[in-house]
Design a protein around this nucleic acid. Structure first.
Lengths: 347, 347
DNA sequence: TTGTAAGCGTTATCAG
DNA sequence: CTGATAACGCTTACAA
């Protein structure tokens, strides 16, 4: 039924091993037989059985992908398809394939990872997120299995190859941008603190304030689990304060969209009454009203580099640990303005 | 190094085949030995090598996913992560894994598919799109390889299992909804006509108009390749008409967002001056200003059913061809209004 | 430069 | 109910 290496060997009048060597384009095979064998392959429509090859060579040429549990934000976020595209293109450069976990809960995902790692289905793994506590990461580390994380590992940063932005500095930058516009009451709206990216961004925000000699206020820092609803609740909480902020640093474009909508419903104008800046710069940032000033973190590159570095680790087991920092840049649109206008307004 | 079935056999004092049977939970093994073997597995931390198992059993328990080339709309669209989540959860119910193509261009994708099919890496394939001409689909059909398509196949509909919405009727419905609101100048803004879904939707739109005795106008049907820019250009074209439409049927939420923005920039109010209805009902539909009236096509279910049906086909080769129609429903929000207001406005 | 033969870790077919 | 033994299709020493 299926045409194997043996059929090709027979037709070409050589041994199976020779065919195998032709597939691998071994230098120790004469051009003449290579051509002969390739013709036989053509003629029979031969395609190597990757499974058999994997079993024999103990390598699959495939990358395992681990997304956070689908209840978390990543999956709903344009971040996901974009980083996936980056990984995909990166993998393609070396002909790697992609294998995905299908689990929903953390436990299911953990089991998936064990299955794909011990089941020898993948040569390495990319973690699409970085959480404060993570069984999956611990497992991979313990087994010494090749993996890279997108984001900054919470522990053992020096020992784990990861691809990240400098989220601390980015948050500091945007906060300073707001400060420079004259804002002094700047609040932070972030996601789940279990994600390291959230932690980094609050820290950067706080640093900027501290540098500017502005004291931190607990009421100004809000963390919400969900994107839409979160934005809404954050606005409610913030605006019911005695001293509501005049500017908001929001940790995710989607959440910022929620914020914008709530503000709009309350009749509060952006950026006249309140300034908003956010992160990721997904396509929507530019389609919102007003268009969002947002930090472009080059999501595609995060994925692409993750794939590239993982493949390097797979192919060279003694590859040193790396920290790859993808540059970011602030894309200024129309959601930020000087604080003066707000003050003028209230006078 | 790695613990195999043989190690387990030795420790449990049975033969490798017995261990294999315990893994498969064969009914012809005594409970006693099952327990004994399982204990040995535990003790050694045994996990089956899926690759070896696949080679021996000629089945991989994995589903191949084929997305359209990333230059097309699907990848940028929230549709993609959602349908993926559906497939993922569907696959998980039977412990199937997911394998993805990494190609960018059509040719790369085609090669990926051949490699994963002939390479025996997957037991079946899901096509995440349906195009008018598609080498991948032809290839799968010729080889008689199990596959399902999400969307309606252009040719051989009766012979290909597919999961779809009744896009024709949905488009007809929404157009009639607009008609009922008094609109007579209704335009259609759609995506690439190579996608069957686009074709179905224009057809439904046209049918509704014809039923209502309204003559079709070519200038009222616009097709755009890209989402944002497309929305913008469509608006420009439509509004420069002598007789601009008072209502728009837009084939995709994201494009509708582009439309909304262009309209907004031109100072045209929705729904007062013009009504807009779109398709898919992704999260953004509800976050736009005004919130979009949109057809919820139950994207998650499309994916879930695709996985379920494919697995059925894989497990039962003589499973009959099926057409699964996922229901849709119109979610009314604030982007549609009676035509009267527009008329009043212009008087 | 090429062939022979022994794996890779399972499952499946026969016996018993 | 359980055990040998032969596949599964390929890679890779080791020989020649």
């Amino acid at each position: 039924m299926t045409v194997t290496i043996k059929d090709v060997a027979k037709l070409a009048g050589v041994s199976p091993s020779t065919v195998s060597r032709v597939i691998a384009d071994s230098s120790r095979i004469s051009e003449k037989t290579k051509i002969k064998v390739r013709e036989a392959m053509q003629q029979l429509g031969y395609h190597p059985n990757m499974i058999a090859r994997s079993l024999a060579s103990q390598s699959t040429q495939t990358i395992g992908l681990v997304a956070p549990s689908s209840t978390d934000l990543v999956f709903q976020n344009p971040f996901f398809p974009t980083v996936l595209r980056g990984i995909s293109e990166g993998a393609h450069t070396k002909q790697y394939s992609i294998h995905m976990t299908t689990g929903k809960t953390e436990k299911e995902i953990y089991d998936d990872v064990v299955k794909m790692v011990q089941g020898r289905r993948v040569d390495g793994v990319i973690l699409l997120y970085s959480k404060v506590e993570d069984r999956v990461l611990s497992y991979l580390r313990e087994r010494n299995f090749p993996f890279v994380v997108i984001g900054k590992p919470f522990k053992h940063v020096e020992e784990i190859t990861h691809i990240d932005n400098d989220n601390f500095r980015a948050a500091k930058d945007v906060t300073e941008h707001l400060l420079r516009l004259g804002h002094e009451r700047v609040a932070f709206v972030g996601g789940n603190l279990n994600f390291v990216v959230t932690v980094d961004r609050v820290l950067g925000y706080e640093k900027a304030l501290r540098n500017a000699g502005i004291s931190l206020r607990n009421e100004y820092v809000i963390h919400e689990e969900f994107l839409r609803e979160g934005g809404q609740e954050a606005v409610n909480a913030l605006l019911s304060l005695e001293d509501p902020p005049t500017a908001l640093v929001v940790s995710d474009d989607l959440m910022a969209l929620g914020v914008l909508n709530s503000l709009n419903e309350l009749g509060i104008q952006v950026p006249k009454d309140i300034s908003v800046v956010s992160f990721n710069n997904v396509m929507l940032a530019e389609m919102s009203r007003p268009p969002l000033t947002s930090v472009d973190i080059n999501i595609f590159d995060l994925g692409f580099e993750a794939a590239r570095n993982l493949m390097q680790m797979i192919e060279n087991p003694k590859e040193p640990v790396k920290r790859v920092i993808i540059p970011y840049n602030l894309v200024k649109r129309s959601s930020c303005g000087p604080v003066e206008s707000a003050i003028v307004e209230s006078t």
